[in-house]
Structures are given as structure tokens and as C-alpha cells.
């Protein structure tokens, strides 16, 4: 009888043990800080709409460079000024784009229009002050790793034309200047944190980078001194890049 009682007690103890559920309390993610910074690297290709200038007889960009695009690369730093249902950022972006091609001979002979041994280049340094709204509630509230955003920017674009390595001068007019304009950008970012949450947590701890993302955006830049007739460096183009939010 005593042996039976012991066996029952052991069984009871075992059953109680097996009924226990191990609950691990997962710490909630830290709240979004009220302010932050974003850094982006981007690149793309663009063709300035030089031929859109009123009264111009041909498109000199096409004449010199054909239909080949300028290679563009740039970086943008943004300050997260407001965070609520989404976030608003203000920043500064700088880029560089260039295109080289042979100059064209201008002669009375059969060489007229033929490529010269001299190279000419159009070089632009797009600068912009963008204000952006990012609808990042998709990620912060619903966990959807896609964040759409729009930007409005003031654009300043120093430009320079070279021939034979120096600024080209025609009839005393130097081929360099500064054009102003504005631009709209619409894009979507894919939050890479979703691919490896643990690595994302480690990055927050180790580097302070809260989010890493890749993005694609469409840019509508109107760079014509706000409608003034002159060299038109407006462009519509896509850029792609990598971003980090701190």
C-alpha cells in the first residue's frame, strides 16, 4: 500500500511539472525617439532637358552626347524634425553628374561635324534642400516593411562645361553658372530590418542605426531659374539607394 501511495505521489508531481508553461517575457522594443537623423546614398542616371528651352533650334545635349544619360551619384542627410503619424524631415543633399563626349569640328571642309580629338563635358553638382514626409507608420505600427514618402525640394545646381579640360568660353561667355529650381520626389523604401530582426537589434545597440533600408524614387526636377529662359537642366529620373536612420 505504501508503495502504491509513493507511485501516485510521483505521478502527481510529474503531471504538475508537465502542466507548467514557461513564459518568456519579451522586452518591448524601445519607443521611437522624437528626433533622429537619416543618411542616404543614392545613384541613378538622368538626361537634362536642355532642348526644352524656349526658342532653341536643336537640342545641344543630343547633338554632343546623343541619347546617353549622365551618371548621377549623391548623398542626403536629413533631420527628423517631427514624428507622429509618419515623420517629417528636413535635410540637405549633394550630388554629382557628368557626361563626356568628343567635341564637334566646325570647319568649312568635309571634317565639319566630325568628332574632334578634344573632349567636352557637362558637369553638374545638384544641391537640394528637401522637406520630406515619410509615412513610416506602415512599419512602426503595422510592421509592413514598405514606407512610402514624398519630398519637396529647393534645388541649386552649379554647372560647368569643359572643352579640352578647361571651362569652355564662347564669345567671351564662360560655360559655367548656377541654376535654381524646385523638385518633387516620390518613392518607397523597403525596411531591411524585416529580413533579420536580430541583426537589426544588434545594429541599434552597436551603431545606433535603428533602420536600414533600400529605396527607389522618382524625381521631377525643374531647374530653369523658376521659368526664366536659359539653360534648362530640368530632369525626370529614377534614383536608387541605401539609407540609414539613426
Amino acid at each position: 500500500m505504501r508503495a502504491v501511495a509513493v507511485a501516485v505521489a510521483v505521478l502527481l508531481a510529474a503531471s504538475v511539472a508537465s502542466a507548467q508553461t514557461v513564459v518568456q517575457l519579451k522586452p518591448s522594443p524601445p519607443p521611437e525617439p522624437p528626433i533622429g537623423f537619416i543618411f542616404e546614398l543614392k545613384m541613378g542616371t538622368l538626361i537634362p532637358r536642355v532642348g526644352d528651352e524656349e526658342g532653341i533650334s536643336s537640342n545641344p545635349y543630343e547633338t554632343i552626347f546623343g541619347n546617353k544619360s549622365m551618371l548621377f551619384g549623391g548623398a542626403e542627410a536629413d533631420f527628423v524634425a517631427w514624428r507622429g503619424y509618419g515623420s517629417v524631415t528636413v535635410g540637405f543633399a549633394a550630388g554629382y553628374a557628368e557626361k563626356y563626349a568628343p567635341a564637334i569640328l566646325v570647319t568649312d571642309g568635309p571634317d565639319n561635324g566630325q568628332p574632334s580629338t578634344e573632349k567636352t563635358a557637362l558637369i553638374i553638382f545638384p544641391l537640394r534642400i528637401p522637406v520630406a514626409y515619410r509615412f513610416d507608420a506602415t512599419w512602426t505600427r503595422w510592421g509592413i516593411p514598405f514606407v512610402p514618402y514624398v519630398k519637396l525640394a529647393l534645388l541649386m545646381t552649379p554647372w560647368r562645361v569643359t572643352k579640352g579640360g578647361t571651362t569652355e568660353v564662347v564669345n567671351g561667355l564662360s560655360g559655367s553658372g548656377l541654376k535654381w529650381g524646385y523638385g518633387f520626389t516620390a518613392g518607397v523604401a523597403f525596411i531591411l530590418n524585416v529580413l533579420s530582426p536580430q541583426m537589426a537589434k544588434d545594429m541599434v545597440t552597436d551603431t545606433g542605426i535603428r533602420r536600414t533600408y533600400i529605396f527607389a524614387e522618382y524625381n521631377y526636377d525643374k531647374i530653369d531659374d523658376f521659368g526664366k529662359i536659359g539653360l534648362n537642366l530640368s530632369a525626370r529620373y529614377f534614383t536608387f539607394g541605401l539609407g540609414f536612420e539613426f
Binding site: 547633338t63 554632343i64 567635341a103 566646325v106 571634317d111 557637362l122 568660353v169 561667355l173
Partner: peptide, 10 residues
């Protein structure tokens, strides 16, 4: 020989 760069062509 005379040649036009982008600025000259423009």
C-alpha cells in the same frame, strides 16, 4: 581646327 563643345553647340 575650330570645334564646339557642349557650350558652343548650345
Amino acid at each position: 581646327q575650330t570645334s564646339n563643345g557642349f557650350w558652343g553647340e548650345y
